[in-house]
Measured scan of single mutants.
Amino acid sequence: VKVFRALYTFEPRTPDELYFEEGDIIYITDMSDTNWWKGTSKGRTGLIPSNYVAEQ
């Protein structure tokens, strides 16, 4: 598990995607895809765009 911080707010387009706000901490559990990672924030899990976060 790696810890990342959201650089921007992300509004999901599908139920599989995770909503998060700029500054949120996201725990990444799967980075197997280059563009979409699986992450958890505020008790919810979903896909996030990798270019919206920076490693802490």
Rank of each mutant, 00 (worst) to 15 (best):
P15D: 13
P12D: 02
G23V: 02
I48L: 14
K38G: 05
V1R: 11
L47T: 06
T14K: 12
L7R: 06
P49T: 09
T29W: 15
S50N: 05
N35W: 14
R5A: 06
T40P: 02
T34H: 13
D16P: 04
W37F: 10
K2T: 09
L7Y: 03
R44D: 04
D24F: 04
I28G: 00
S41L: 15
N35E: 13
W36M: 08
R44Y: 06
Y19R: 13
K38M: 15
T9N: 11
S32H: 09
L7K: 09
S32D: 08
L7M: 10
Y19Q: 11
G39S: 01
T45D: 07
T29N: 08
K2P: 07
V53S: 01
Y8A: 11
I26Q: 00
P12V: 05
E17C: 09
D33F: 04
L47D: 02
P49I: 03
A54K: 13
T14R: 13
P49M: 06
N51M: 11
T9L: 06
E17V: 04
D30T: 03
V1N: 11
Y19F: 13
K2Q: 09
K2Y: 11
K42H: 12
Y27P: 00
D16M: 11
E17W: 07
V3D: 02
G43I: 02
K38Y: 15
E11T: 14
P12R: 05
D16R: 09
G39M: 02
I48V: 15
W36L: 06
S32K: 08
Y52S: 10
S32G: 08
Y27C: 13
S41C: 15
E11V: 15
L18D: 01
S32V: 10
T45F: 14
T45V: 12
D24E: 07
I25S: 05
R44H: 09
T34L: 14
A54F: 11
A54R: 13
L47W: 14
T40V: 12
G43P: 01
T40L: 09
P15W: 07
P15S: 12
F4Q: 00
S50Q: 06
L18P: 00
Y19A: 14
T45P: 05
G46I: 02
E55Y: 11
P12T: 05
I26D: 00
T9S: 12
V53L: 14
N35M: 14
Y8H: 10
W36E: 01
G43K: 04
N35K: 14
A54I: 15
T14H: 14
R44A: 08
L47Q: 05
E17Q: 15
E11Y: 15
W37K: 01
K38H: 12
D33C: 06
Y8L: 10
F4K: 01
E21N: 08
D24Y: 04
V1P: 12
E22V: 14
T40R: 11
L7V: 07
V1L: 13
E22A: 15
M31T: 10
A54D: 08
E21S: 09
M31N: 07
G39I: 03
I28C: 02
Q56L: 15
D33G: 09
T14Y: 12
E17Y: 12
R44T: 06
L47A: 05
L18A: 02
T40Q: 11
Y8Q: 10
I26W: 01
T14C: 14
T29H: 14
I26L: 13
T29S: 12
Y19N: 07
E21I: 08
S41V: 15
E55K: 09
P12W: 06
Q56T: 14
N51A: 13
I25L: 14
I25E: 08
E21M: 09
A54L: 13
A6C: 04
S32Q: 10
F4Y: 14
L7I: 11
Q56K: 10
Y52C: 12
D30W: 04
Y8C: 15
M31A: 07
V53G: 03
P15R: 10
T40W: 15
R5F: 14
T45Q: 10
K2G: 09
M31G: 04
G46F: 03
D16L: 13
L18Q: 00
